[in-house]
Design a protein around this nucleic acid. Structure first.
Lengths: 346, 346
DNA sequence: TTGTATGCGTTATCAT
DNA sequence: ATGATAACGCATACAA
């Protein structure tokens, strides 16, 4: 259709094409292109000839070939646990911004919380090497990660803190302490003595930490936990709703409930309201994450805020430190803040 | 630490290493590995020797080298307009599932609705070729895409329908008709005669189509549109809120408002409620998308549902048709359904 | 059935 | 300051 330029015989122009047009050798083209700043000797005259030819042909370097030669890809990989979760989007967005600033592309994958997909991701990294990896592993073992590192020699940074490997920086939050403080506030400032808990299976990394913080707060306040008020969900909105529906059948209820994430907390609020109960008067609800929906639900959700943008930035910068050779002396464990946001639900 | 296996002298094992260990030539290894199904003559004996060596060394093919040689990457790229938008997540998830089934990796990028980032994405595709591209272009011109195609010869599939290029399949929805039907329902079934509109700039692809459907419904019903009831937002929650706040200052208001997406619709609901008005009694609200938040807000949002998972599947399958050589005779324009979901807000 | 030779598009090490 | 030449890891045409 629009063939107003040259006839491309086969595929994009290569350095050979540029070299021929400029009347120089192919390595010379390479030198010109790779030393816009680092002053490697190349005469002003040839440099100009080359640059003209580059522009004329619309030449772009082929990254695949470059990668094969340099063993660097200028790509990083990100593995998240749930691509539909807003929390990870903001993290991904922040990471991508940092990557972009370093002129890196980002490959993103999604494990859907299943081990097989996590392994598959590692496999992909081994077969298509990247310069750095950021991940939120759920089930990957120390051994899995160690194998990945020894095989690829790729810098890895991890979100969450259950990995203790000398070559892996970790960015996480102090869930235990934040939960402790939030529950303590619920007891001291709001006067609750009977507090329920909507958790998730303990093999999700943050689960045991938050559970410990919760228990510590109760113990410190001299309260006991009624096991009937332990409900288990799976992070989903619907599971929060179902937890409440099960609770309402047992003939007693706590005066407040702490849910491990906002989605379950909101499901709980809606289920309570559907049952004719008032939040927070009959039951107060506290969540975790501070996702956008927390200000949409009524009453607005009181929750422990994470700062995904900050998390993403930190984790990406830690990664680029290693990628660009600024290796830390030892494994770093960075902590990002958490903060209780008091709204109307508790 | 865990060096229970062989000493890796430098990087991952290559076909050479496998060949040496198996006592065969490197091309033989290649043949064995690439013809598990296509019966290319290779003796059972050597095949076994090779496979043992492969397992022994933990050999994995290097995709970079393979790509350079075959000119295929087994990767597709996805460009979305807003990585924080739930709508795109579900699309991305569906696409990734299809890609996974075809044993492809997926590279995802995010334009944030800005032209420069869209161009940058094209640039990335040119420099790091992929086997297929799916995108939601906002500003890219026919020329931009045509250049991309002639330069890379890569199959492209587009979400939304403003691109009319012979080599580009398009998957979209019939926004105009769906909007027409929804507004007609608002008029006929709910008796509204004065309907406001929260739109976005017309250079967002779906914007003019929905605007036309809206106007056609009014005209068909013999109603006129009061220009004072045209409000402009930018897709965001906050802009819906602000639109209402501006509206409330002009001393008159419509009995219903149609917003171009759920986020703005929800912002509108909350702003109206904050002003002491009732939804839907004082003002009815209708949205577009049926995102998760639509069932969280109270009253629940009446909205036009898109089916992102289905969209993602269709667009991915259309792409793989081309990638795998099942070229359609002509440009295909696939339409996915839209459906009015009636809840309480209108 | 298998081995030899070549090339994908770069970068890097030699020379000159 | 620049041009040959080799190498990255793999796939394939050709020879044997």
């Amino acid at each position: 259709m629009t063939s107003d330029k040259h006839i491309d015989q086969s595929g994009p122009p290569t350095m050979q094409d540029v070299a021929k047009l400029a009347g120089v050798s192919q390595p010379t083209v390479s030198r010109v292109l790779n030393n816009t700043k680092t002053t490697i000797p190349v005469s002003k005259k040839t440099r100009d000839k080359v640059l003209v030819a580059v522009k004329e042909l619309g030449y772009r370097p082929n990254m695949t070939a470059r990668s094969l030669r340099t063993q660097r890809t200028h790509m990083i990989s990100l593995l998240v646990a749930d691509i539909t979760n807003n929390f990870y989007h903001l993290i991904a967005q922040a990471i991508q911004e940092v990557a972009r600033a370093h002129d890196y592309d980002m490959l993103i994958a999604n494990s859907d919380h299943v081990y097989e997909n996590e392994k598959r991701f590692c496999e992909a990294v081994i077969r298509r090497p990247v310069d750095g990896v950021i991940m939120v592993p759920q089930y990957l073992t120390y051994g899995d990660l160690d194998e990945l590192i020894t095989l690829t020699n790729t810098p890895i940074t991890v979100l969450g803190q259950h990995i203790n490997h000398p070559a892996i920086d970790v960015v996480g939050a102090d869930d235990e302490q934040a939960t402790f403080e939030a529950i303590t506030w619920l007891i001291a400032e709001r006067g609750h003595k009977s507090i329920g808990y909507i958790g998730v299976a303990l093999d999700y990394p943050p689960s045991p930490r938050r559970w410990q913080g919760f228990q510590r707060a109760l113990k410190t306040a001299g309260l006991t936990f009624d096991p009937d008020f332990y409900m288990q969900g799976d992070w989903s909105f619907e599971s929060g709703r179902q937890a409440i529906n099960r609770l309402l059948k047992i003939g007693k209820r706590p005066s407040a409930i702490f849910a491990l994430n906002d989605l379950m907390a909101i499901g709980a609020i809606l289920a309570l309201q559907d049952a004719g109960l008032s939040v927070p008067d009959d039951v107060a609800i506290m969540g975790f994450d501070n996702m956008r929906e927390a200000t949409i639900v009524r009453p607005r959700l009181t929750t422990i805020a994470q700062y995904p943008t900050e998390i993403g930035q930190k984790v990406a910068e830690a990664l680029f430190d290693r990628i660009e050779g600024r290796e830390p002396d030892a494994r770093r464990e960075l902590t990002v803040p958490l903060k209780l946001i008091v709204r109307e639900s508790a």
